[in-house]
Write a protein that binds this DNA or RNA. Structure first.
Length: 429
RNA sequence: CGGGGCGUGGUGUAAUGGUAGCACGAGUGCUUUGGGAGCACUUAGUCCCAGUUCGAAUCUGAGCGCCCCGACCA
């Protein structure tokens, strides 16, 4: 496994001794959490709640976020996205230009300096549009795709369901700029494919449905990517013919499946893990964002926006992949590739575990090493199941008696003895 | 924002007007080591304010916080 370029620069990023890991597991979940994602992520030491809808990502949780982030970043760059970071502090004037200062009720407003008033950014059309205006003059400057991965703030009336609806959350938002509606349409379709690739990569591709949703005032429909889960707050109707779905919000106006015209649907609660939206000229009109085409004619720039909430996606993955013992991370987003458990503190066992750990570390394999000396095997197994790293490797007297380490995948029951000299390559494969 | 529920060590709980207790966690020591070990000692708590009472975790009022249902969610 090759290290992702932004995951870490030091060799130590690729390993961790559990005796040093910040964040302890809990035997019981805090009683005020009812959703699976919140219970498991808190118990396993991935996140901590500061106040309603506001969570800390502990080292384990942050590693998962970074995995997700890198998958998303890579896909955004593949379709021409250029990454930047825009400010979180937005001047009131920007939001007055679009008439959204008073109408977006989730806007956190705060005092600035002197008589200045500010908002914490819930989305960035008000910032990206005037920014782009400074650099777009002609059709030669188009199309343009800008994205960021950044903390958003929304004053939700009711935060809920662990990481599903928060007041502060990480989001990838990409804004696209086009010289024609046809070009926007084409990119929108491309982005659908990109989103599918992302959801497949993080592991929920088979569990996710492309869903027709309200287009607001800008277009007839937008598309959401919805993943059925108990903690979901949307209701969708899955077409039994083509595997696409309709959001409840447009169910009254849509009788047949907009994709295949079928009439049979299955109702389910679902989590919106992504949304793609044609803004068209709504914001370019507000900010006078024009370009000149090759005939010298001035036209409004066409825009689209495309969002994915990273924390919500992490919560959704937990909602989908878990059992009664804990989380079962898909490989691509697991905080570590392997969980090395040392059972017993005899020097022979310790030496064997340390040796394997040292070699994995050297080769850049991300491994969590449970080297804790004061924990019983039962507790180490329970923690390993709870944390949910895909591969568990046990070093014990029993395994060493057969010159082996014991391998078990988190999502399987099967336990396999692998000879010591073959273990390294097996873990890396 | 409407309705409901709940606030006791880090976590889960008991005490319903009369000595704040238990389990897990954490710390020290010894013994343990294949599915959340044992013994001993230790650590740590009634959300805040006001009131009623001889006495309040418990009753009353106000506040704050958290959760759930609903509304809302470019």
């Amino acid at each position: 496994m090759s290290p992702s370029r932004t995951l870490g620069t030091s060799e130590d990023y690729f390993n961790m001794r559990q005796s040093n890991l910040f964040g302890k597991t809990l035997r019981e979940a805090p009683k005020d959490e009812t959703t699976i994602n919140a219970k498991l992520l808190i118990r396993a030491g991935f996140i901590n709640k500061l106040t309603a809808g506001v969570y800390t990502y502990l080292p384990l949780g942050w590693r998962v976020i970074r995995k997700i982030e890198n998958i998303i970043r890579e896909e955004m760059e593949k379709v021409g996205g250029q990454e930047l970071v825009m400010p979180v502090l937005h001047p009131k004037e920007s939001w007055q230009i679009t008439d959204r200062w008073d109408t977006v009720d989730v806007l956190f407003k705060l005092e600035g300096w002197e008589s200045k008033e500010l908002a914490l950014g819930p989305t960035h059309e008000e910032v990206v549009t005037p920014l782009v205006k400074k650099h777009i003059q002609t059709y030669k400057d188009l199309p343009l795709y800008l994205f960021q991965i950044q903390t958003k703030f929304r004053k939700e009336k009711r935060a809920k369901s662990g990481l599903i609806r928060n007041r502060e959350f990480l989001m990838k938002d990409l804004y696209s700029f086009h010289k024609s509606e046809a070009d926007l349409d084409e990119y929108y379709e491309k982005m659908k494919e990109v989103y599918w690739r992302i959801f497949k990569k993080v592991g929920i591709g088979n569990e996710t449905y492309l869903t027709f949703a309200s287009g607001g005032t800008f277009s007839k429909f937008s598309h959401e990517f919805q993943t059925p889960a108990e903690a979901g707050e949307d209701v969708i109707y899955i077409c039994q013919e083509c595997r696409q779905a309709i959001n409840q919000e447009i169910r009254p106006e849509v009788k047949n499946c907009p994709n295949c015209q079928a009439k049979q649907f299955k109702e389910t609660k679902a989590i919106e893990v992504g949304n793609i939206f044609k803004l068209k000229t709504k914001f370019s009109e507000s900010f006078d964002l024009y370009f000149v085409d090759k005939h010298g004619t001035k036209g409004l720039v066409q825009m689209g926006c495309y969002g994915i909430g990273l924390g919500r996606l992490m919560g959704t993955i937990v909602e989908v992949f878990h059992d009664d013992k804990g989380i079962i991370w898909p490989k691509a987003v697991a905080p570590f590739s392997a969980h090395l458990l040392q059972l017993g503190n005899e020097s022979k066992i310790k030496a064997a575990a340390e040796k394997l750990y040292g070699r994995l570390k050297k080769q850049g394999v991300e491994v969590l090493f449970d080297d804790r000396q004061d924990k019983t095997p039962g507790e180490k197994f329970a923690d390993a199941d709870l944390i949910g790293i895909p591969l568990r490797v046990v070093v014990s007297e029993k395994s060493l008696a057969q010159k082996s380490f014991e391998f078990k995948n988190r999502n399987e029951k099967k336990i396999e003895l692998v000879p010591v000299d073959k273990s390294l390559t097996r873990i890396k494969s």
